[in-house]
Design a protein around this nucleic acid. Structure first.
Lengths: 208, 208
DNA sequence: TAGATTGTTAATCGATTAACAATC
DNA sequence: TAGATTGTTAATCGATTAACAATC
């Protein structure tokens, strides 16, 4: 079932479905139709049914989907049924804020490494995590078998640092820098430079 | 020319083009072909030419594009030829980090308002900005004619706060919360919950 | 049983790519 | 002039939507 190719764009939507399903479970609901779920997510029933059908038939005609079952299946599909260790690279404002971010721990994300290259920061703590020098990444990352990194450095250092991360075994990078990273295709990069995100919306705003 | 419909997906790519063009200008280049630009952005020459053609013909056959001209045109198209004032709502770790973020000021973004609802924070400063109570948003936002807000609250408060923001005249929201906001279609929302971004990549990682 | 809703197929829509005449 | 590269059209590809038989 997962052998058949699933388009990236489908994968991108699944976490949003999961998000709403979790919310619904919290509200005490047990069952949901594709249309009801779609209304909350902001899409259509047909699209949800199509997306889910790449992975199997989780619903019941006439009834819809068991919220509990669907959450469980989405967890399996997205590999969320384990805790992922993550390294934060760059201990500036943003890096420290993300390290402390409450939303990670209870959603299966464990920030376990924090790096910077600024001498005065090395050895200091952010909450209980000690800031290590970027030069120790190549050893520390494989040691803890970390596969995911969050990049919050100045743009100039992003490319070279990302290359070291890849050498250290990192397979996915959440890139908060403005840099357009050039990395092997097997490394997955999500770009979320806040400036770029804001610029995307400015087009739609009235100049005044 | 801008009267003809331009697909959202084209608009989304323009800030990335601009990003690379700025980089090239910094490197001292003056001219670039669609293919050379595409290589750096990670797309194809055809796509860049098609995207730009929605707005006019900025290139010269045989030569390519003037980097200077293209940067200027993209600024005009995306409405980046002015400074945009932005409100940050939520003065937790992330909100404070974004308020202090160096990358905003030199790219035309002015964080001029910061709100929270936690009594002990009201009146305290983040850099030179005073944290105000969320109840004062409805007055303070129109007063400064702010159209863009960054949401960094706990998910539970996101929807109701966003509705107040819309009433206050906000037209674009950069949403860092896990909430799926339901707002009038004329309000532009970009969702960048870091957890969702990470989950999108976990699908592609080997379970081990 | 009658009503509701799935999973899937076929039809439609939109986006990307290829190709090339125009021209710098 | 010859070579390079644009802007655009047509062809291809992929994603969304509509429709409905199957069935709970």
């Amino acid at each position: 079932m997962r052998d058949t190719f699933v388009p990236d764009i489908v994968i991108k939507r699944l976490p949003a479905y999961l998000q709403v399903l979790n919310q619904m479970a919290k509200e005490g609901l047990h069952t949901v139709s594709s249309v009801a779920l779609a209304d909350r997510v902001g899409t259509t029933g047909a699209q949800i049914r199509k997306d889910l059908s790449y992975f199997g038939g989780f619903g019941k005609q006439g009834t819809g989907y068991s919220i509990y079952v669907l959450i469980e299946e989405l967890h399996k599909i997205l590999h969320l049924d384990k805790i992922w260790r993550v390294a934060v690279v760059g201990a500036g404002n943003l890096g420290r804020a993300l390290t402390r971010y409450q939303g990670f721990a209870n959603r299966g994300i464990d920030i376990c490494l924090l790096f910077d290259n600024h001498p005065s920061l090395i050895g200091t703590k952010v909450d209980s995590l000690i800031i290590q020098h970027v030069d120790s990444m190549e050893k520390a990352i494989p040691k803890q078998n970390v596969k995911i990194a969050i990049l919050t450095l100045p743009g100039e250092a992003a490319q070279s640092t990302a290359e070291i991360l890849v050498k250290a075994g990192i397979q996915a990078i959440l890139n908060y820098t403005p840099a357009t990273l050039k990395l092997p295709k097997n490394v997955h990069v999500e770009n979320i430079d806040p400036v770029l995100q804001l610029q995307r919306m400015m087009f739609y705003l009235e100049e005044d």
